[in-house]
Design a protein around this nucleic acid. Structure first.
Length: 185
RNA sequence: GGAGCAGGUGAGGCGGUCGCUGUCCGUCAGGAUGGAGGAAAGUCCGGGCUCCACAGGGCAGGGUGCUGGAUAACGUCCAGCCGGGGUAACCCGAGGGAUAGUGCCACAGAAACCAGACCGCCAGGCAUUGCCUGGUAAGGGUGAAACCGUGGGGUAAGAGCCCACGGGCGGCCAUGGUGACAUGGUCGUCGGUAAACCCCACCUGGAGCAAGGCCGAACAGGGGUCAGGCCUCGGCCUGCGGUUUGCCCGACCGUACACCCCGGGUUGGGCCGCUUGAGCCCGGUGGCAACAUCGGGCCCAGAUAAAUGACCGUCACCCCGUUUCGGGUAACCGUUCGGGGCACAGAACCCGGCUUACGGCCUGCUCCACCG
RNA sequence: GGCCCAUUCGUCUAAUCGGUGAGGACGCAGGCCUCUCAAGCCUGAAGAAGGGGUUCGAGUCCCCUAUGGGCCA
């Protein structure tokens, strides 16, 4: 719950974007789930001061990205698939205190300009609105081809709802004591 | 008003918040500064650079193809010649050789490249309205293309058989031009196709920065000598295999068992290659020009799941209208409001080109038509 | 990033050098047969990725573009 204080200070700027304020309820619910996924939440306040400023602010340094093909493959193979309309998300818990993002746009999605634009949109959504509420998960966002161009507000909504669905399914799988581990799909 | 050519600009400008990446400084808080294109694209050519191969010679293969120049080089560019298109400005052209040879020219047609006569025409014979022999490319018909075309002479009928004019191709000569070629004369000749094989001239080793080098980690193997025969013990001959990055000659190397010696390959790990270069800007000189040269100034992206962005405000521009007001008979013009749009497209070793994609705006030159 | 290859009816594929209705199989449509359907038999429709050039004539030769696929260490 210490996370919430940090976020409230950060999100003063965010309130300039009046359209998105209605989703606060969603944010609080996701925050409640996060400590289960990440183990390094025991002393988050002290960690923020120790770590680089990029982690606490809205930055997007290399520590928040997936940088190797092996890391991508692991998430594709072991992560939970969360399909949305324009996106296909793969989510997998990691042992770090911060989330990591990887973006994949296949050649079928479009030409280089369109692929770059889609990656930038996903990155900006993650950087400004998503990553503050997550802790130790690896997230791969695959932009699906043939669904039309990706827009900023679409992307934000789909990533929020997708993560909500993921955490709900994880909660359900943990509370009945491993009754249905293969269920969350 | 319409059209042709050449060039420029181009995430439209400004501001705010947050963010990415290279370099430099740093008291490790941070700060300063640089950060996509004319096509970065397609990968169609040409180079630089790197590795591999290479005694030498021959053949094959590939490419280019009017002339002269430019260039590091080119299939590019500039200036011209010739042919074709357009009223014109101008545009297009793989544009050497068909007399070195070979092949092909379907169907149709008698015949498709140099020989031949289907209907005709003419002569002769048989014979009685047809047949045979010979001559004939003027006429018919076919075709993309038929012994160059028109007229005259000539003839049994005809034919470059002869003459006049004209057309194409080739040789030789003269003049002009560096040359392609042009003009004139003379002689010969008269289908096309070389983006068919080919001939001629010139060029051409192969791969590509995922080239290649260094380091680290993990994994296990890799290399050298030695065949048989002869013999003066150093060489020769023979067999088999390999290399000579297409093939041949030639050259070189290897060859069972066994012995001896230590390095070797692999990989989306790191570093180097990696950004100062046939570089850009300004001015002078030479040249019709492409371009060259001299002087001064400048440093201008180097990522690696891959930076150069996201959102908001505002101002321009364009389009649409059940929008406001004003003017006007009207088309419409100005103004206000609302909505939408603002191209093609993203460096990956670097250059020179070509090709393709591209909304809008601007500049210059030129042609045609109309009016004054 | 670089280097290569291919594209023929709806689908899978043929045709030697350029030559005149581009062939076959499955599928589709119609008919015959059958009480009906299937099978079988007969008939038919439907095709050169796009643009330009060479040629009398291009699926074939040459150039450009588009699309699809493969390889590298």
């Amino acid at each position: 719950m210490d996370d919430e204080k940090n976020i409230s200070t950060e999100s003063n700027k965010k309130k300039a974007v009046a359209r998105l304020s209605g989703q606060d309820a969603d944010q609080e619910r996701t925050q409640g789930i996060i400590p289960q996924a990440g183990k390094g939440t025991a002393s988050p306040g002290s960690q923020h001061t120790i770590e680089i400023g990029g982690v606490t602010g809205e930055g997007f340094p290399r520590t928040l990205r997936l940088l190797r093909k092996t890391q991508f493959d692991l998430v594709f193979k072991q992560g939970n698939r969360v399909p949305r309309k324009h996106l296909l998300m793969f989510v997998k818990p990691n042992t770090l205190s911060s989330p990591r993002l990887g973006i994949a746009t296949g050649k079928r999605y479009g030409k280089a300009v369109e692929r770059n634009r889609a990656k930038r949109i996903v990155r900006e959504v993650f950087r400004r609105f998503i990553r503050q509420h997550l802790a130790g998960i690896d997230l791969v966002v695959l932009v699906r081809p043939g669904r039309g161009p990706l827009r900023f507000d679409n992307c934000l909504g789909e990533m929020r709802s997708g993560l909500k669905k993921y955490f709900k399914s994880v909660e359900k799988a943990q509370s009945p004591a491993g009754l249905a581990p293969d269920n969350p799909d």
